[in-house]
Amino acid sequence: MHDNPTTNRSTTAARRFPGRTVAGVGAVVVVALAATWGVTARSEPAARAAAAADHERDGGEATTEATPEGTEGGDIPSGRELTPFDTRYPAIGRLDKPLLKAVQEAARDARDDGIELRVTSGWRSKDHQQRLLDEGIEKYGSPEKARQFVNTPQKSTHVSGKAVDIGPTDADDWLIRNGSDYGLCQVYTNEMWHFELLTGPGGACPAPLSNAAG
């Protein structure tokens, strides 16, 4: 279904800057060393950020930076693609730990097949879920029709952190075919992007429900 995948892994280079103190060096050298230290210290945050970005792209451990403003309820910034390792975003960081671990493991293996898993939605606050339901009712014309795509805050597995939406389509296709290796299963036939941890690694997924209304 896909072209021959190729692995595209970046390599993070570790650099060292060894210093050496020589006896008898005068005050001029001391000043020069102090200036050099100042430049290095100022550059460290940028260096750490770059290294963390490379580490994340390589499928490294989850990031632990501050929560970006406006994402506290599980919102994902418009135009921003998140990986399962962007845990500073509550939508990902507040997922149920076994689910998050399974998705991260799947993401690493999918990358070996040339597929990049992106999280389009994950954990949501009750207010966020209610807002989506209200928008669904307006879009589809009735609560009954909206419920086929959006659950109530009381029943949503997104609110409990036990569901994750994955994109793009080739990633969904890969996860539908391989997700059971990690315990990940497609839950609804009308939502190929919605996955939950419904079996053990290598187990059999239950048959998908027709929609979120059950």
Score class of each variant (00 low, 15 high):
residue 132 L to A: 14
residue 106 A to Y: 07
residue 77 P to A: 00
residue 206 P to R: 08
residue 81 E to Y: 12
residue 18 P to F: 08
residue 151 N to V: 00
residue 210 S to N: 13
residue 40 T to F: 01
residue 80 R to F: 11
residue 188 Y to T: 07
residue 29 V to F: 04
residue 146 A to N: 09
residue 10 S to V: 12
residue 195 F to A: 02
residue 145 K to N: 12
residue 97 K to C: 04
residue 181 D to V: 00
residue 50 A to E: 07
residue 155 K to Q: 15
residue 53 A to L: 10
residue 46 A to W: 10
residue 160 S to L: 09
residue 133 L to V: 08
residue 205 C to D: 01
residue 205 C to V: 00
residue 18 P to I: 12
residue 173 D to S: 14
residue 38 G to Y: 01
residue 176 I to F: 02
residue 185 C to R: 14
residue 121 S to T: 03
residue 64 T to Y: 03
residue 176 I to D: 14
residue 62 A to D: 11
residue 160 S to F: 04
residue 132 L to K: 15
residue 62 A to V: 15
residue 162 K to D: 03
residue 188 Y to F: 15
residue 107 A to P: 09
residue 136 G to N: 13
residue 180 S to C: 02
residue 94 R to L: 15
residue 42 R to H: 10
residue 128 H to E: 15
residue 90 P to Y: 14
residue 141 G to I: 04
residue 208 P to A: 05
residue 108 R to S: 02
residue 146 A to M: 09
residue 147 R to W: 03
residue 56 E to Q: 11
residue 26 G to Y: 09
residue 46 A to Y: 06
residue 101 K to Q: 11
residue 12 T to G: 11
residue 208 P to V: 07
residue 7 T to K: 12
residue 210 S to L: 12
residue 43 S to H: 10
residue 175 L to S: 08
residue 195 F to L: 02
residue 115 I to F: 07
residue 50 A to K: 03
residue 17 F to W: 10
residue 52 A to Y: 00
residue 57 R to Y: 10
residue 3 D to V: 13
residue 38 G to F: 01
residue 57 R to I: 03
residue 208 P to C: 08
residue 194 H to W: 13
residue 138 E to H: 08
residue 193 W to D: 01
residue 89 Y to W: 07
residue 81 E to R: 15
residue 168 P to K: 09
residue 181 D to T: 01
residue 74 G to S: 11
residue 141 G to A: 03
